[in-house]
Every structure is written in C-alpha cells, then in structure tokens.
Nucleic acid binder design. Structure first.
Lengths: 196, 196, 196, 196
DNA sequence: AATGAATGAGCATTCATTCAT
DNA sequence: TATGAATGAATGCTCATTCAT
C-alpha cells in the first residue's frame, strides 16, 4: 500500500505499473490481483485511504471557536506541515485534477470538495452575521477563493510543477519560505475578507 | 492539429498516442512524422501555438495606463473568454502540472510562468510606488497569489475537475456565472491589494 | 535459445528481430523479455555462452608441453571440428565484424580477441627463447598472422561467403578437405615460423 | 553515388536508408527510384562499380615479370595504400561477407574471388616449376592462404572491427605501422613459400 | 523528368491481466 | 493462498516504396 501510494503519487494513474508496485513491495503480481480486481480498484482504494487522512486533519481544525485570523493561521501552518510530511497524498489529489473524466473520479471529487465547501461557506456566512467579515461578499464564492488559496498552498509545497512555479515567482524554495508564506498569505486574506 | 490538441488536452502528454491521433485524423502515422520529428515536438508546437495567442492577448493589456482596477477587470474578462473559446489550450496547460518531470516539459513551464511572473511582479511594484497599492506586501508573493487567482479562473472554466469543483462551491455552472465571477473576484482583489 | 542463435548468426545483431525469434520459437515476445532485459542482453548471453565453449577448448590445449607443431595440429583440428559442430557461433562472431560500432559490441570484441592475442603472443615469445621459433620475427605481429590463419579456417568452414570463396580457390567443399587443410596449413605455418 | 557508397560502406546493406542517401545527396527519393528499381539494385550497382576499381588495380600488378619477392612487396604496399585511400570500397567488400545468402551476393563473390584465385594459383604453380617456390605445396590452397593474408591486410586497414583487432594484437594503429607490416609480412611469406 | 507527401508494415519494448501450479 | 510465467495488444518511431503533381 505504501509503495502503491508512492508510485501513484509520483507517476499518476496511467503511468504507474502494477508490476513495479508488486516488485518494490516484494510481493507477486498475483497477490495484488487477489485483493484488487484491477488497477482502477487499487487506485480507488488508495485514494479513499488518503482522503480519510486528509479529512481527519481538516475536521480537527474546523470546530474551534477561536478568532478567525488565528484559525486561518493555524490552518495555513497545518496545511504546510501536512504537505511536507505527506506530500504523496497531496500529489495524489493533484493527479486527480487532470485524470480522464471517469465516473469514479467524479465521485471522488464530490467527496473531497463537498466537505470543505460547506464548512468554509458556513464559516464565512456566520462571520458575516457577527460582523467579523464584510457583508458585500458572496460566501460561496469567497469560500471557493479561500479554498483556492489553501489548495495552491499545498500543491506548491508538494507537487513538482507547482513547486517550480512558486520558485519562479519568489525565487525561493517553498521549504525555505514558510514564514513569508504565512505572513503574506494572512495579509492577503485579512484584507480580502476585511477580517476584524 | 485540431485532433492532436484535443487528444493532448484530454489525456496529457504521456497518455496521448500518436497512433490514435493519426487514426482519428484520418492520416497515417508516417504523415505525422513528416511534419514533426517526434511526439515532444508536436506537443511543443501545439503548446507554443496556444501560448502565443494567450501572450499576445495579455501583452495588449499590460502597457495601458488605465486604472489598475479596470485593467484587472479586463484581464479577468479576457481570461474567461479565452478559456471558453479555447478550453483545450487551458486543459493542455493543466495537464502539464501533473506530467512527468522531463527536461522539455520543464522548459515549457519556464516559458509559461516566467512571462506572467515578471509582468505581475513589476506591475505591483510600480503600483506600490505610485501609492495605488499598499506598501506592506511582498510584490513577488502577491504576484504569485494574483496568478493563482487567474489560473484557477481559467482551470475552473476549462478543466473538467475544476469545473465540477466550482459547481460544488457555487452551485452554478461556470458558464452561467460570468458576472458573479467578475464582480466578486474584483471585490476580492480590490480589498486584498487595497487598490485605490 | 537455439532459434535466437540461428537468427543472430544468419542476420547479425541489428537485423535480427526479437518478434521473429519469438514467433519461430513458438513463444510470445513477452516471454523473451521475461528472461532478457533487452536485445543486447540476449545477444551477449548467446555470445558468451558460445565463447566459453571455445575458450575452454583452447585453454585445454594451451598449457601442454608438447612439441609446438603437434600443438598446432591439435588446434587446427579442434577449430575445424568446432566450426562444423557449432557453425552458428562462428557466424555470430563473423557478423560482429561488420556490425555497427556500439559500445556493447566493442566490449564483446575486446573479450574475444584479447584472450587469444595474449596466448599466441606469449607462446611465440617463449618459443623464440627456447629456439623453437626463429628470432627475427615480431611475436605480436606473427601472433596476429597466426590468428588470421585460424580465423579464416573457421570462417571458411562455417560462413556462407567464406565457404564459397574457399570452394572457388580449391574446388572442394570445406567439409571434404579436412586432411588437405590440416596438412597444407601445417606446412605453411611450419615454414613461416621455422618450427623446429 | 559517392554518398550511397559511403553509406553502404558505413552501415551495410540493411542499415542504409535510401531516404538518408537521397537527403545527403541533395536529391529526392523519387529520383533514386527513377534510376534504380529498389535498394538491392542500387547496392548491386555500387558494388560492381567499386569492384571494377579494385580489379583494375590488381590487374596492373599481375603481369609484371619481376622477382616474386619484389612483386609481393609491391602488392602489399599497393593494397595498404588503396585501403587507406578508398576505405569505403574495402568496407563494402567486407560487408558482403556477412550478408544473407542471396543469389546476387553469390554472383558478386564469384566475380570478386575468381580472378585473384586463378592469378595467384597460376603464379604459384609457375614459380614451382622454375624452382622459385618449393614443390611440396598445393598451389590452390597456398593461393588461398596468400589471399587470406592480403585480404586481412586490407580489412585491418579499412574496417573498424579488424582495425581494432589489429590494435589489440600489436598495440599500434594500422596507420602508424606500415613499415612493420610490410617487413614482417614479407618475412612471413618468404619463409612460408620458401621464396628464393 | 523530378519531387516529396503519404502509406503502412515493421521494430524494440512495456505492461495489465490470466491461470496453471 | 500465493506465485510468477506467459500472453499479446499497444506505443513511439523508421523506412522502402508508391504516385499525384
């Protein structure tokens, strides 16, 4: 499983070879097919497995009652750390975004996005009511923009292409610029949301 | 060309087969190799072709002396329109983000990002001097955040996964929500950059 | 293996197709690649296999303390017999002489020639000291000439072109003229080396 | 034609591409097929062309009435020089020796070898009668051995494999060791034939 | 006469999947 | 239950040959 996750993360679905996964795992191809009917099932399993980890993490952050800016900082730091410790999961997620449009991919995306979408949207709506966030914004759309920021934060930490892109912009490896990222992202969000 | 663009956009570089492209185009594989030395060259040609179109469009916008908010609106509308008219090109770009790490893909990405990176960074830096944008932000990092916003705008318009994701957040097809997107994105950027 | 040896012998390295080898062997291409990583490895294996046989045979002859003329006769008879029993191996070697200049073919040739070169040269040098061979000759060059004689003996027995050429000269099939070959070649060498 | 000769010499029949020949010649493939029905015919033409040159050269040497040792030295020097000046022809000849056993190759070999075979055999037979060469040898077989020596001389000068082999034996590039070759080869032949 | 675009079979190699052991 | 040998279709690419211009 660990090997499969690594391989899928590194090479994407199509370019991952079950023979390679089996060899690196020290088991036989036959054994893989004992537990999974085909490559797609193996991939699905790995994805669901990874998603659970990801969701657990986000769930921990959500319910706290802290100041919204402090919460945001916590989320940013957590996402950064998670992307560094488990880059494969983030890469796996990223690889999903360019996969073909199969039924099972759609289901996965529903599962991934639906949770955060509703959490963020509700949080913003509530904050609007309490006056913490300005009232002239569309909560759903701003939730979307917020998630974009968070998603890119993770991709830029874990995925080769986005890492390189970050480097082109800031001239620094993502690893070396944690404080810059946290500080500037908060500045950005604070103004954008008019956080009080 | 059209077929090749579609195939590359749908399957990415690695998983597009020249044999398939040839078959769908109704020509022979040999004919493809008459005009392109190899798959990489075909891909590069198609990418450069699309990039030039995009760059031309952006270049037209860049030097104008207009109010920065008006400029931003123009860029957003341009990108949205481009993504709708040439979704394959955006998908192509998106497919790059999960492709393998070959030398030639890296060069391509350099070209794509380097141009916008320098334009955005410089624009922000200049706007800081004229007082149009607040001075406590890092121009390079904010250029990066700005490009994130623009990139996601395009992906959400053209790429299946991001389209679906947008729908999950806002409950609307991207096609139907142009005005929402323009208005809210500008609101977001205006506050974030403290545009005057 | 047998089929591969035949095909390589007949067509040389470049012009032997693994698909053909597999088909003629009644197995699938995949099966070939199960045992050999690539064409080069298959070729190398077959060559080394054959070379070992030949080298073993020559090694047995080398260290003996017999009269040098008797030794020469033994070598000639051994080579003739080997060429008749394993013509494919000799053809294989011959095919090397016109093959492309790839790294791995060069290494193969180094192995083939280096062994006999040093054995022959040393043998001649020693024989010069004991007075068995005249002293006015260059041991290395005469070793080269000697190997030429032996090599042509084998090629003429096993390779179509050289067989035909032998026939043009002597009017006899090589198979039918063993005694002539042994007798006359010894006469030739004896005089040339002034064997005592 | 010049280009075709070079290509065939360098790559052999199978690995020479008519498209490459046409491109390097600056003419179209169609033009090649105007004059030659197929690749085999082109090759045959080139071979016959080259052979004429080769034969002309040998013919000049044959009829002289000089001392047989002097003649031999002339032949050796001529062959060496020829191989250096026109290595392609020699390589072409060498490539013949490993080609498949087609009808047209057999005819070529007949043409190439028959002439020298009869000249050498007759020369030796005559020399035996005049007492210049000892009488206990078979003229045809010794003619064959003699041609072996000459052939190897040419191959070792012009063909990559045999050049390398020569180097392994003597430690010198063939180019640098002309005098050694002439001197030692004569020593070898003189003794072998017991030239007076 | 000359061109060169087009064809399509061929090659080395990979890999998802099956199945006898 | 577990193995891994075997299959064969698929891929990127080449090239002898044809034929409309």
């Amino acid at each position: 499983m660990r090997v499969a996750r690594q391989e899928f993360a590194e090479n994407g679905f199509e370019n991952t070879s079950i023979m390679q996964v089996a060899k690196k795992s020290g088991i036989s191809v036959g054994a893989v097919y004992k537990y999974f009917d085909n490559k797609e099932q193996l991939f699905t399993y790995i994805m669901h497995d990874g998603l659970s980890t990801l969701e657990d993490m986000l769930m921990e952050l959500a319910p706290s009652e802290e100041d919204i800016l402090i919460k945001a900082e916590k989320i940013i730091r957590t996402l950064l750390q998670f992307s560094k410790e488990q880059p494969e999961l983030v890469q796996l997620y990223c690889s999903l975004t360019t996969g073909g449009n199969t039924e099972f991919l759609n289901q996965l995306s529903q599962r991934i996005e639906a949770v955060t979408a509703s959490i963020y949207t509700r949080t913003i709506a509530v904050a609007q009511e309490t006056g913490e966030v300005r009232k002239d914004i569309n909560p759903a759309f701003f939730a979307y923009l917020l998630d974009n920021v968070f998603m890119m934060l993770q991709f830029s930490t874990a995925c080769p292409y986005y890492k390189e892109r970050f480097f082109i912009y800031t001239g620094k490896q993502v690893e070396d610029s944690d404080e810059l990222i946290v500080e500037q992202t908060l500045l950005f969000l604070k103004a954008a949301f008019n956080f009080k």
